[in-house]
C-alpha cells in the first residue's frame, strides 16, 4: 500500500471545496468593491486615482477586507466541522488532528490570499494604468501584497485558534477586528503595538503623514520587527490552534 501524506490530501480536498463554497463567491463580490471604487475615481478624476488607491483602498483592504476574510475563513476551519457535525469523519481516520487542522488552514489561507491578491492586482492595474512601465510601481505592489499575505497569515492563525477554542468564535472575532484592532491602533505610546494592524501598516510604503489619519496616527515601527512580530504571532497562534484542536473534546450532539 502506497501511503498518501495526509496534510496535502486535506489541503487539496478543502481548497477545492472552498473554491465551490458560497462563502467564497460572496467574498469575491466583496473583493470587487474596491475595484469598482477605483474604476469610478479613475473615470471621474484620472489624476487622483493613484492617490486614491494608496490612501483609501489600502484602508479598505488592510483594515477591513483582509481581517474580515481571515476571520471568516479562519474561524470556519473548525467551526464549520462542528456546525455541520462533520468533524467525526476527520477524527476517525488514522491521521493526527494537527495534519487535519494545518491542511485546512493552508487551504483557507491560499483561498483568502488569492482573493486579496486578485482584487489588489486589478485595483492596481486600474489605478496605475499610466505608469505600468515603472518598476517602482510594481515594487510597491509587491510590498503591499507581501504585507497583505503577512496579515492574512497572522489573522487567519489567530481566528483558527479562536475557532478551535470556542464554538461561536465569529462574534469574538468581530469584536477583535472592529473593536480592538480598529481602536487600539490609534492609542498613543506602545499600546498600539498590541494590534496586528500596527505592524502591517508599518510595512506599507507610504511616507508618514502623507497617508493621513486613516493610514497612520503615529510613527511606524522599523521594517524588521514589523515583519518578525506578525510572523512570530502567527506561528504562536497556529501552535495554539493545533494544541487546542488536538486536546479538546468536541461534543457534536446535544443528546446523549
Amino acid at each position: 500500500m502506497k501511503s498518501a501524506s495526509p496534510l496535502p490530501v486535506v489541503f487539496a480536498a478543502f481548497f477545492r471545496a472552498g473554491l465551490r463554497a458560497k462563502r467564497t463567491r460572496v467574498f469575491i463580490l466583496l473583493a470587487l468593491v474596491p475595484l469598482l471604487l477605483t474604476l469610478l475615481v479613475r473615470v471621474v478624476d484620472p489624476k487622483e486615482s493613484g492617490d486614491f488607491f494608496t490612501k483609501v483602498m489600502l484602508s479598505l483592504y488592510f483594515q477591513l477586507l483582509v481581517p474580515v476574510l481571515a476571520l471568516f475563513f479562519g474561524s470556519s476551519i473548525v467551526n464549520d466541522e462542528l456546525d455541520g457535525k462533520t468533524l467525526v469523519y476527520l477524527t476517525t481516520v488514522p491521521v493526527r488532528r494537527r495534519a487535519v487542522l494545518l491542511g485546512k488552514y493552508l487551504a483557507a489561507l491560499l483561498l483568502a490570499a488569492l482573493l486579496v491578491a486578485g482584487g489588489f492586482l486589478l485595483c492596481f492595474l486600474v489605478a496605475a494604468f499610466g505608469r505600468l512601465g515603472e518598476a517602482a510601481a510594481w515594487g510597491e505592489l509587491g510590498v503591499f501584497l507581501g504585507a497583505a499575505l503577512l496579515a492574512l497569515f497572522c489573522y487567519s492563525a489567530l481566528f483558527t485558534a479562536l475557532g478551535a477554542f470556542m464554538k461561536k468564535s465569529i462574534l469574538a472575532g468581530i469584536f477583535f477586528v472592529f473593536g480592538w484592532e480598529s481602536v487600539v491602533q490609534y492609542f498613543p505610546g506602545v499600546t498600539q503595538k498590541f494590534t496586528v494592524i500596527h505592524w502591517i501598516k508599518s510595512l506599507l510604503p507610504i511616507p508618514p503623514g502623507e497617508g493621513g489619519f486613516l493610514i497612520f496616527q503615529l510613527q511606524p515601527s522599523p521594517p524588521l520587527p514589523s515583519v518578525l512580530v506578525p510572523l512570530a504571532a502567527g506561528a504562536l497562534f497556529l501552535w495554539l490552534a493545533v494544541l487546542i484542536f488536538e486536546r479538546k473534546e468536541y461534543i457534536l450532539s446535544d443528546n446523549a
Binding site: 501511503s3 495526509p6 480536498a13 471545496a17 455541520g84 491521521v95 450532539s253
Partner: peptide, 28 residues
Amino acid sequence: FCPEHDSAYNEMSGGAFILLLARLHGFA
C-alpha cells in the same frame, strides 16, 4: 465508525467524500 448524525460535506459528491477518506486512510 458510522455516526448517527445526518452529517456530510454536502457540496462534495459522494465519490469525492469517500475518496477523501480513503486517502486519509493511507490509500493512494
